[in-house]
Design a protein around this nucleic acid. Structure first.
Length: 474
DNA sequence: AGGTCGTTAGA
DNA sequence: CTAACGACC
Protein backbone atom coordinates (compact mmCIF):
# COMPACT_ATOMS: atom_id res chain seq x y z
CA UNK A 1 0.00 0.00 0.00
CA UNK A 2 1.06 3.51 -0.73
CA UNK A 3 2.01 5.65 2.24
CA UNK A 4 0.30 8.72 0.91
CA UNK A 5 -2.41 10.44 2.94
CA UNK A 6 -6.05 10.49 1.85
CA UNK A 7 -8.91 12.43 3.39
CA UNK A 8 -12.21 10.56 3.62
CA UNK A 9 -14.87 13.22 3.93
CA UNK A 10 -17.95 11.66 5.56
CA UNK A 11 -21.26 13.39 4.94
CA UNK A 12 -24.48 11.38 4.59
CA UNK A 13 -22.68 8.05 4.57
CA UNK A 14 -21.86 7.51 8.23
CA UNK A 15 -20.91 3.89 7.85
CA UNK A 16 -17.92 1.67 7.23
CA UNK A 17 -19.65 -1.10 5.22
CA UNK A 18 -20.57 -0.56 1.58
CA UNK A 19 -18.83 2.78 1.53
CA UNK A 20 -17.25 3.22 -1.93
CA UNK A 21 -15.37 6.41 -1.10
CA UNK A 22 -13.92 5.02 2.12
CA UNK A 23 -12.84 1.86 0.33
CA UNK A 24 -11.16 3.81 -2.43
CA UNK A 25 -9.39 6.07 0.06
CA UNK A 26 -8.24 3.10 2.14
CA UNK A 27 -6.84 1.36 -0.91
CA UNK A 28 -4.99 4.48 -2.00
CA UNK A 29 -3.24 5.27 1.25
CA UNK A 30 -3.50 6.14 4.90
CA UNK A 31 -6.79 7.71 5.80
CA UNK A 32 -7.86 10.81 7.66
CA UNK A 33 -11.58 10.38 8.34
CA UNK A 34 -13.25 13.77 8.50
CA UNK A 35 -16.72 15.05 9.29
CA UNK A 36 -17.70 18.69 8.83
CA UNK A 37 -20.76 20.18 10.49
CA UNK A 38 -21.91 22.09 7.42
CA UNK A 39 -24.66 24.36 8.73
CA UNK A 40 -22.78 27.47 7.59
CA UNK A 41 -22.79 26.19 4.02
CA UNK A 42 -26.38 25.01 4.32
CA UNK A 43 -27.95 28.39 5.08
CA UNK A 44 -31.73 28.06 5.41
CA UNK A 45 -31.36 24.32 5.20
CA UNK A 46 -29.33 23.99 8.37
CA UNK A 47 -30.11 20.82 10.30
CA UNK A 48 -33.32 20.64 12.28
CA UNK A 49 -33.35 19.83 15.98
CA UNK A 50 -34.15 16.15 15.64
CA UNK A 51 -31.57 15.64 12.89
CA UNK A 52 -28.91 17.10 15.15
CA UNK A 53 -29.72 14.64 17.92
CA UNK A 54 -29.49 11.73 15.53
CA UNK A 55 -26.30 13.08 14.01
CA UNK A 56 -24.65 13.38 17.40
CA UNK A 57 -25.21 9.71 18.16
CA UNK A 58 -24.35 8.63 14.64
CA UNK A 59 -21.02 10.43 14.82
CA UNK A 60 -20.18 8.92 18.20
CA UNK A 61 -20.89 5.50 16.78
CA UNK A 62 -18.93 6.09 13.58
CA UNK A 63 -16.01 7.37 15.63
CA UNK A 64 -16.04 4.11 17.56
CA UNK A 65 -16.00 2.13 14.34
CA UNK A 66 -12.96 4.19 13.33
CA UNK A 67 -11.24 3.45 16.60
CA UNK A 68 -11.53 7.05 17.76
CA UNK A 69 -9.85 8.61 14.73
CA UNK A 70 -12.73 10.70 13.36
CA UNK A 71 -11.77 14.34 12.90
CA UNK A 72 -14.66 16.69 13.51
CA UNK A 73 -14.86 20.27 12.28
CA UNK A 74 -17.58 22.89 11.91
CA UNK A 75 -17.81 25.66 9.34
CA UNK A 76 -17.61 26.21 5.58
CA UNK A 77 -16.20 23.09 4.00
CA UNK A 78 -13.74 24.49 1.47
CA UNK A 79 -11.39 26.38 3.82
CA UNK A 80 -11.52 23.51 6.28
CA UNK A 81 -10.47 21.06 3.59
CA UNK A 82 -7.75 23.39 2.29
CA UNK A 83 -6.34 23.88 5.74
CA UNK A 84 -6.35 20.17 6.46
CA UNK A 85 -4.69 19.35 3.16
CA UNK A 86 -2.05 21.96 3.92
CA UNK A 87 -1.43 20.64 7.42
CA UNK A 88 -1.27 16.96 6.50
CA UNK A 89 0.06 17.00 2.95
CA UNK A 90 -2.93 14.93 1.95
CA UNK A 91 -2.84 13.96 -1.70
CA UNK A 92 -6.50 13.23 -2.19
CA UNK A 93 -10.00 13.85 -0.93
CA UNK A 94 -12.72 11.21 -1.22
CA UNK A 95 -16.44 11.48 -0.69
CA UNK A 96 -19.77 9.93 -1.58
CA UNK A 97 -22.08 12.21 -3.49
CA UNK A 98 -24.95 14.14 -1.92
CA UNK A 99 -27.78 15.55 -3.97
CA UNK A 100 -29.07 18.64 -2.18
CA UNK A 101 -28.78 21.46 -4.74
CA UNK A 102 -26.67 23.60 -2.41
CA UNK A 103 -24.32 20.70 -1.78
CA UNK A 104 -23.98 19.79 -5.44
CA UNK A 105 -23.07 23.37 -6.32
CA UNK A 106 -20.65 23.62 -3.45
CA UNK A 107 -19.04 20.24 -4.10
CA UNK A 108 -18.49 21.17 -7.74
CA UNK A 109 -16.70 24.31 -6.62
CA UNK A 110 -14.62 22.43 -4.05
CA UNK A 111 -13.60 19.89 -6.65
CA UNK A 112 -12.51 22.63 -9.04
CA UNK A 113 -10.51 24.50 -6.42
CA UNK A 114 -8.80 21.42 -5.03
CA UNK A 115 -7.98 20.04 -8.46
CA UNK A 116 -6.51 23.40 -9.44
CA UNK A 117 -4.15 23.19 -6.53
CA UNK A 118 -3.16 19.67 -7.51
CA UNK A 119 -5.15 17.66 -4.99
CA UNK A 120 -6.79 14.51 -6.25
CA UNK A 121 -10.58 14.48 -5.79
CA UNK A 122 -12.83 11.49 -6.09
CA UNK A 123 -16.58 11.32 -5.63
CA UNK A 124 -18.51 8.06 -5.51
CA UNK A 125 -22.09 6.89 -5.43
CA UNK A 126 -22.89 5.59 -1.97
CA UNK A 127 -26.43 6.82 -1.55
CA UNK A 128 -28.58 6.05 -4.57
CA UNK A 129 -29.36 2.90 -6.54
CA UNK A 130 -29.54 4.87 -9.78
CA UNK A 131 -27.92 8.24 -10.33
CA UNK A 132 -30.55 10.90 -10.99
CA UNK A 133 -28.96 11.97 -14.25
CA UNK A 134 -29.02 8.36 -15.51
CA UNK A 135 -32.77 7.88 -15.36
CA UNK A 136 -34.63 9.67 -18.10
CA UNK A 137 -37.27 8.89 -20.69
CA UNK A 138 -36.15 7.86 -24.16
CA UNK A 139 -36.28 11.47 -25.32
CA UNK A 140 -33.86 12.43 -22.57
CA UNK A 141 -36.36 14.31 -20.42
CA UNK A 142 -37.10 13.34 -16.81
CA UNK A 143 -40.04 11.18 -15.77
CA UNK A 144 -43.05 12.73 -14.09
CA UNK A 145 -44.96 9.55 -13.35
CA UNK A 146 -43.62 7.32 -10.63
CA UNK A 147 -44.58 3.91 -11.98
CA UNK A 148 -42.96 4.56 -15.33
CA UNK A 149 -39.91 6.04 -13.64
CA UNK A 150 -39.42 3.00 -11.47
CA UNK A 151 -40.50 0.10 -13.68
CA UNK A 152 -39.11 1.36 -16.94
CA UNK A 153 -36.54 3.96 -16.00
CA UNK A 154 -34.91 2.14 -13.11
CA UNK A 155 -35.64 -1.58 -13.21
CA UNK A 156 -35.11 -1.95 -16.94
CA UNK A 157 -31.87 0.06 -16.86
CA UNK A 158 -29.50 -2.03 -14.77
CA UNK A 159 -29.59 -3.88 -11.48
CA UNK A 160 -28.21 -1.94 -8.50
CA UNK A 161 -24.60 -2.81 -7.76
CA UNK A 162 -23.85 -5.31 -4.99
CA UNK A 163 -22.79 -3.90 -1.62
CA UNK A 164 -19.06 -3.58 -1.07
CA UNK A 165 -17.34 -5.17 1.90
CA UNK A 166 -15.69 -3.07 4.56
CA UNK A 167 -12.17 -1.97 3.63
CA UNK A 168 -9.86 -4.95 4.15
CA UNK A 169 -7.24 -2.71 5.58
CA UNK A 170 -7.74 0.71 7.10
CA UNK A 171 -4.71 2.60 8.33
CA UNK A 172 -5.06 6.05 9.76
CA UNK A 173 -2.85 9.01 9.02
CA UNK A 174 -3.96 10.88 12.12
CA UNK A 175 -3.91 10.46 15.88
CA UNK A 176 -6.88 9.39 17.92
CA UNK A 177 -9.09 12.37 18.57
CA UNK A 178 -10.33 13.86 21.82
CA UNK A 179 -13.54 12.07 22.77
CA UNK A 180 -15.15 15.43 23.54
CA UNK A 181 -14.76 16.78 19.98
CA UNK A 182 -18.21 15.58 18.95
CA UNK A 183 -19.79 17.09 22.06
CA UNK A 184 -18.31 20.42 21.09
CA UNK A 185 -20.46 20.49 17.98
CA UNK A 186 -23.26 21.06 20.50
CA UNK A 187 -25.74 19.00 18.54
CA UNK A 188 -27.71 17.93 21.60
CA UNK A 189 -30.36 20.29 22.94
CA UNK A 190 -30.18 21.42 26.53
CA UNK A 191 -33.56 20.14 27.52
CA UNK A 192 -34.18 16.48 28.17
CA UNK A 193 -36.15 16.28 24.91
CA UNK A 194 -32.96 15.18 23.23
CA UNK A 195 -32.61 12.17 25.47
CA UNK A 196 -36.16 10.95 25.52
CA UNK A 197 -36.71 11.42 21.81
CA UNK A 198 -34.00 8.99 20.80
CA UNK A 199 -34.51 6.31 23.36
CA UNK A 200 -36.29 3.77 21.20
CA UNK A 201 -33.58 3.77 18.52
CA UNK A 202 -30.17 2.21 18.37
CA UNK A 203 -28.42 4.96 16.45
CA UNK A 204 -25.48 3.17 14.87
CA UNK A 205 -24.45 1.22 11.81
CA UNK A 206 -25.07 -2.01 13.73
CA UNK A 207 -28.43 -0.65 14.83
CA UNK A 208 -29.34 -0.05 11.21
CA UNK A 209 -28.58 -3.63 10.26
CA UNK A 210 -30.45 -4.99 13.26
CA UNK A 211 -33.44 -2.89 12.27
CA UNK A 212 -33.24 -4.27 8.74
CA UNK A 213 -33.02 -7.88 9.81
CA UNK A 214 -35.78 -7.45 12.39
CA UNK A 215 -37.97 -5.93 9.71
CA UNK A 216 -37.23 -8.68 7.22
CA UNK A 217 -38.14 -11.22 9.89
CA UNK A 218 -41.18 -9.59 11.48
CA UNK A 219 -42.46 -7.03 9.03
CA UNK A 220 -41.89 -7.95 5.41
CA UNK A 221 -44.47 -10.73 5.35
CA UNK A 222 -47.76 -8.90 4.90
CA UNK A 223 -45.99 -5.61 4.18
CA UNK A 224 -48.16 -4.53 1.28
CA UNK A 225 -51.34 -4.45 3.32
CA UNK A 226 -50.22 -4.11 6.90
CA UNK A 227 -47.80 -1.23 6.33
CA UNK A 228 -50.84 1.01 6.60
CA UNK A 229 -51.62 0.11 10.20
CA UNK A 230 -49.52 2.21 12.55
CA UNK A 231 -49.68 -0.26 15.44
CA UNK A 232 -48.38 -3.15 13.32
CA UNK A 233 -44.67 -3.94 12.90
CA UNK A 234 -44.84 -3.84 9.12
CA UNK A 235 -42.91 -0.69 8.29
CA UNK A 236 -39.15 -0.80 8.14
CA UNK A 237 -38.35 2.38 10.10
CA UNK A 238 -35.11 2.51 8.15
CA UNK A 239 -35.60 6.09 6.95
CA UNK A 240 -33.29 7.85 9.45
CA UNK A 241 -30.59 5.25 8.91
CA UNK A 242 -30.88 5.68 5.16
CA UNK A 243 -30.82 9.45 5.44
CA UNK A 244 -27.61 9.48 7.43
CA UNK A 245 -26.18 6.63 5.43
CA UNK A 246 -25.76 4.26 8.34
CA UNK A 247 -27.11 1.73 5.89
CA UNK A 248 -27.04 2.05 2.11
CA UNK A 249 -29.98 1.38 -0.19
CA UNK A 250 -27.73 -1.17 -1.90
CA UNK A 251 -27.43 -3.11 1.33
CA UNK A 252 -31.19 -3.02 1.82
CA UNK A 253 -31.83 -4.00 -1.81
CA UNK A 254 -29.45 -6.95 -1.57
CA UNK A 255 -30.84 -8.15 1.77
CA UNK A 256 -34.39 -8.17 0.42
CA UNK A 257 -33.21 -10.16 -2.60
CA UNK A 258 -32.09 -12.92 -0.26
CA UNK A 259 -35.81 -13.54 0.18
CA UNK A 260 -38.40 -14.47 -2.42
CA UNK A 261 -39.50 -11.39 -4.27
CA UNK A 262 -43.19 -11.88 -3.59
CA UNK A 263 -45.77 -9.09 -3.66
CA UNK A 264 -44.67 -7.87 -0.23
CA UNK A 265 -40.97 -7.71 -1.07
CA UNK A 266 -41.74 -6.14 -4.41
CA UNK A 267 -43.81 -3.47 -2.74
CA UNK A 268 -41.14 -2.76 -0.17
CA UNK A 269 -38.51 -2.39 -2.90
CA UNK A 270 -40.79 0.01 -4.71
CA UNK A 271 -40.69 2.22 -1.61
CA UNK A 272 -36.95 2.46 -2.17
CA UNK A 273 -38.00 3.39 -5.68
CA UNK A 274 -39.99 6.32 -4.27
CA UNK A 275 -36.84 7.48 -2.54
CA UNK A 276 -35.02 7.36 -5.89
CA UNK A 277 -37.93 9.21 -7.52
CA UNK A 278 -37.74 11.99 -4.91
CA UNK A 279 -34.03 12.42 -5.52
CA UNK A 280 -34.62 12.45 -9.24
CA UNK A 281 -37.29 15.14 -8.84
CA UNK A 282 -35.02 17.24 -6.66
CA UNK A 283 -32.13 16.87 -9.07
CA UNK A 284 -34.26 18.00 -11.98
CA UNK A 285 -36.11 20.65 -9.96
CA UNK A 286 -33.70 22.31 -7.54
CA UNK A 287 -36.55 24.52 -6.28
CA UNK A 288 -38.63 21.50 -5.26
CA UNK A 289 -38.38 22.42 -1.54
CA UNK A 290 -39.90 25.85 -2.06
CA UNK A 291 -41.78 25.98 -5.36
CA UNK A 292 -44.93 24.23 -6.57
CA UNK A 293 -44.00 21.78 -9.29
CA UNK A 294 -47.36 22.51 -10.91
CA UNK A 295 -47.28 26.22 -11.58
CA UNK A 296 -51.03 26.69 -11.37
CA UNK A 297 -50.75 26.15 -7.63
CA UNK A 298 -48.84 29.42 -7.34
CA UNK A 299 -52.24 31.12 -7.30
CA UNK A 300 -53.61 28.95 -4.53
CA UNK A 301 -55.30 31.02 -1.78
CA UNK A 302 -53.55 29.59 1.27
CA UNK A 303 -54.96 30.84 4.56
CA UNK A 304 -52.99 32.53 7.29
CA UNK A 305 -53.89 31.09 10.66
CA UNK A 306 -51.24 30.98 13.34
CA UNK A 307 -53.65 29.54 15.89
CA UNK A 308 -54.53 26.60 13.69
CA UNK A 309 -50.90 26.01 12.73
CA UNK A 310 -49.91 25.95 16.37
CA UNK A 311 -52.70 23.53 17.24
CA UNK A 312 -51.56 21.25 14.43
CA UNK A 313 -47.93 21.31 15.55
CA UNK A 314 -48.86 20.57 19.13
CA UNK A 315 -51.32 17.81 18.35
CA UNK A 316 -54.27 19.78 19.72
CA UNK A 317 -56.55 19.93 16.69
CA UNK A 318 -59.37 18.02 18.34
CA UNK A 319 -59.07 15.25 15.72
CA UNK A 320 -57.67 12.30 17.65
CA UNK A 321 -55.90 10.55 14.78
CA UNK A 322 -54.27 13.77 13.60
CA UNK A 323 -53.19 14.64 17.13
CA UNK A 324 -51.81 11.15 17.67
CA UNK A 325 -49.62 11.48 14.59
CA UNK A 326 -48.34 14.92 15.53
CA UNK A 327 -47.55 13.79 19.04
CA UNK A 328 -45.77 10.69 17.80
CA UNK A 329 -43.60 13.05 15.76
CA UNK A 330 -42.86 15.31 18.70
CA UNK A 331 -42.24 12.52 21.16
CA UNK A 332 -40.27 10.11 19.00
CA UNK A 333 -38.77 12.03 16.07
CA UNK A 334 -40.65 9.73 13.73
CA UNK A 335 -44.13 9.37 12.28
CA UNK A 336 -45.69 6.37 10.64
CA UNK A 337 -46.20 6.91 6.91
CA UNK A 338 -49.98 6.55 7.04
CA UNK A 339 -50.08 9.33 9.63
CA UNK A 340 -47.79 11.54 7.55
CA UNK A 341 -50.40 11.42 4.81
CA UNK A 342 -53.27 12.00 7.23
CA UNK A 343 -51.73 14.98 9.06
CA UNK A 344 -50.42 16.40 5.79
CA UNK A 345 -53.81 16.25 4.13
CA UNK A 346 -55.33 17.81 7.23
CA UNK A 347 -52.91 20.75 7.24
CA UNK A 348 -53.06 21.47 3.53
CA UNK A 349 -56.71 20.71 2.84
CA UNK A 350 -58.80 20.96 6.00
CA UNK A 351 -56.81 23.86 7.47
CA UNK A 352 -55.81 25.15 4.01
CA UNK A 353 -52.37 26.14 5.26
CA UNK A 354 -49.37 26.26 2.94
CA UNK A 355 -47.62 22.89 2.53
CA UNK A 356 -44.28 24.63 3.10
CA UNK A 357 -45.27 25.24 6.72
CA UNK A 358 -45.71 21.53 7.21
CA UNK A 359 -42.50 20.81 5.35
CA UNK A 360 -40.61 23.17 7.67
CA UNK A 361 -42.07 21.61 10.79
CA UNK A 362 -41.21 18.10 9.61
CA UNK A 363 -37.72 19.31 8.78
CA UNK A 364 -37.25 20.37 12.38
CA UNK A 365 -38.86 17.39 14.07
CA UNK A 366 -38.11 14.30 11.99
CA UNK A 367 -35.07 12.15 12.57
CA UNK A 368 -35.29 11.20 8.91
CA UNK A 369 -35.66 14.80 7.67
CA UNK A 370 -34.37 14.53 4.13
CA UNK A 371 -34.60 17.34 1.62
CA UNK A 372 -35.64 15.20 -1.34
CA UNK A 373 -38.10 12.96 0.48
CA UNK A 374 -39.60 15.70 2.61
CA UNK A 375 -40.25 18.17 -0.17
CA UNK A 376 -41.44 15.53 -2.64
CA UNK A 377 -43.74 14.09 0.02
CA UNK A 378 -45.33 17.43 0.84
CA UNK A 379 -45.80 18.32 -2.80
CA UNK A 380 -47.41 14.93 -3.28
CA UNK A 381 -49.94 15.35 -0.49
CA UNK A 382 -50.66 18.96 -1.42
CA UNK A 383 -51.44 17.84 -4.94
CA UNK A 384 -48.99 20.25 -6.55
CA UNK A 385 -46.19 17.73 -7.13
CA UNK A 386 -45.27 15.20 -9.79
CA UNK A 387 -47.57 12.20 -9.97
CA UNK A 388 -49.27 13.70 -6.95
CA UNK A 389 -52.45 12.83 -5.15
CA UNK A 390 -55.18 14.53 -7.17
CA UNK A 391 -56.39 17.65 -5.41
CA UNK A 392 -59.76 16.23 -4.64
CA UNK A 393 -58.27 13.36 -2.69
CA UNK A 394 -58.89 14.67 0.78
CA UNK A 395 -58.42 12.29 3.67
CA UNK A 396 -61.26 12.18 6.14
CA UNK A 397 -59.55 12.35 9.54
CA UNK A 398 -62.32 10.36 11.17
CA UNK A 399 -62.54 7.55 8.65
CA UNK A 400 -58.77 7.24 8.40
CA UNK A 401 -58.63 6.63 12.13
CA UNK A 402 -61.47 4.12 12.08
CA UNK A 403 -59.99 2.30 9.13
CA UNK A 404 -56.30 2.16 10.01
CA UNK A 405 -56.39 2.19 13.80
CA UNK A 406 -59.56 0.14 14.25
CA UNK A 407 -59.01 -0.78 17.87
CA UNK A 408 -57.57 2.63 18.70
CA UNK A 409 -54.32 1.26 20.12
CA UNK A 410 -52.13 3.80 18.37
CA UNK A 411 -54.39 6.77 18.98
CA UNK A 412 -54.96 6.01 22.66
CA UNK A 413 -51.23 5.62 23.16
CA UNK A 414 -50.40 9.11 21.94
CA UNK A 415 -53.64 10.76 23.05
CA UNK A 416 -53.98 9.22 26.50
CA UNK A 417 -56.65 11.67 27.58
CA UNK A 418 -58.98 9.70 25.30
CA UNK A 419 -57.83 6.30 26.55
CA UNK A 420 -61.24 5.43 27.97
CA UNK A 421 -63.33 6.57 25.04
CA UNK A 422 -65.21 3.65 23.46
CA UNK A 423 -64.12 2.72 19.92
CA UNK A 424 -67.36 4.02 18.51
CA UNK A 425 -66.56 7.62 19.44
CA UNK A 426 -62.79 7.58 19.78
CA UNK A 427 -62.22 9.33 16.47
CA UNK A 428 -65.21 11.69 16.80
CA UNK A 429 -65.50 12.55 20.46
CA UNK A 430 -67.62 15.61 19.73
CA UNK A 431 -70.41 13.30 18.60
CA UNK A 432 -70.39 11.28 21.82
CA UNK A 433 -73.36 11.64 24.17
CA UNK A 434 -72.67 13.50 27.41
CA UNK A 435 -72.84 10.31 29.43
CA UNK A 436 -70.23 8.55 27.28
CA UNK A 437 -67.86 11.50 27.61
CA UNK A 438 -68.42 11.62 31.33
CA UNK A 439 -67.71 7.93 31.79
CA UNK A 440 -64.53 8.29 29.72
CA UNK A 441 -63.43 11.21 31.88
CA UNK A 442 -63.43 13.56 28.90
CA UNK A 443 -64.56 17.17 28.95
CA UNK A 444 -64.29 18.64 25.47
CA UNK A 445 -62.62 22.01 25.48
CA UNK A 446 -60.93 21.17 28.79
CA UNK A 447 -59.30 17.74 28.89
CA UNK A 448 -59.25 17.46 25.09
CA UNK A 449 -59.86 20.17 22.46
CA UNK A 450 -63.02 20.62 20.49
CA UNK A 451 -62.35 20.14 16.75
CA UNK A 452 -60.76 23.27 15.28
CA UNK A 453 -62.57 22.88 11.96
CA UNK A 454 -65.71 21.27 10.63
CA UNK A 455 -64.69 18.31 8.44
CA UNK A 456 -67.42 18.68 5.88
CA UNK A 457 -67.25 22.45 5.56
CA UNK A 458 -63.46 22.55 5.41
CA UNK A 459 -63.43 19.82 2.79
CA UNK A 460 -65.82 21.78 0.63
CA UNK A 461 -63.83 24.96 1.20
CA UNK A 462 -60.68 23.21 -0.07
CA UNK A 463 -62.45 21.78 -3.10
CA UNK A 464 -63.75 25.26 -3.97
CA UNK A 465 -60.28 26.75 -3.61
CA UNK A 466 -58.67 24.10 -5.79
CA UNK A 467 -61.41 24.49 -8.36
CA UNK A 468 -60.66 28.21 -8.53
CA UNK A 469 -57.19 27.49 -9.91
CA UNK A 470 -56.92 27.93 -13.65
CA UNK A 471 -57.17 24.61 -15.39
CA UNK A 472 -54.14 25.51 -17.52
CA UNK A 473 -51.27 23.15 -18.12
CA UNK A 474 -49.22 21.98 -15.16
C1' DA B 1 -51.81 6.35 -1.42
C1' DG B 2 -59.77 8.93 -0.96
C1' DG B 3 -64.44 10.39 0.02
C1' DT B 4 -69.15 11.08 -1.20
C1' DC B 5 -73.16 10.22 -3.33
C1' DG B 6 -76.35 7.74 -6.08
C1' DT B 7 -77.62 3.28 -7.99
C1' DT B 8 -78.33 -1.45 -7.72
C1' DA B 9 -78.08 -6.26 -6.11
C1' DG B 10 -79.24 -8.91 -2.51
C1' DA B 11 -80.52 -10.14 2.54
C1' DC C 1 -82.46 -1.90 4.76
C1' DT C 2 -77.41 -2.73 3.82
C1' DA C 3 -73.35 -3.85 1.15
C1' DA C 4 -71.11 -3.34 -3.21
C1' DC C 5 -70.00 -0.63 -7.04
C1' DG C 6 -69.17 3.23 -10.20
C1' DA C 7 -69.07 8.17 -11.30
C1' DC C 8 -67.59 12.13 -9.98
C1' DC C 9 -65.26 15.53 -7.24
Amino acid sequence: MSTSTRIMWFRQDLRVGDNPALRAAAMAGKVIPLFIQEDEDAGDLALGGASKVWLHHALCSLNQSLDGHLLVRAGPALPILEELIEATNAEGVYWNRCYEPWRMARDTEIKAVLKARGTHCESHNGNLLWEPWEVNKKDGTPYHVYTKFYRRGCLEAHAPRSPLPKPEELTFACEKQEASAIDELKLLPRRDWGETIGKSWEISEDGAHKRLSDFLEEGLHGYKDDRNYPRKPNVSRLSPYLHFGQISPHQVWAAVHHHDIDRDADHFLSELGWREFSYNLLYNNPDLPSTNLQKKFDAFPWREDQTALKAWKKGLTGFPVVDAGMRELWQTGYMHNRLRMVVGSFLVKNLMLDWRLGERHFWNCLFDADLANNSAGWQWIAGCGADAAPYFRIFNPILQGEKFDPDGTYTRHYVPELAHMPDKFLFRPWEAPELVLKEAGVTLGETYPKPIVDVKASRERALEAFKSLSEGTS
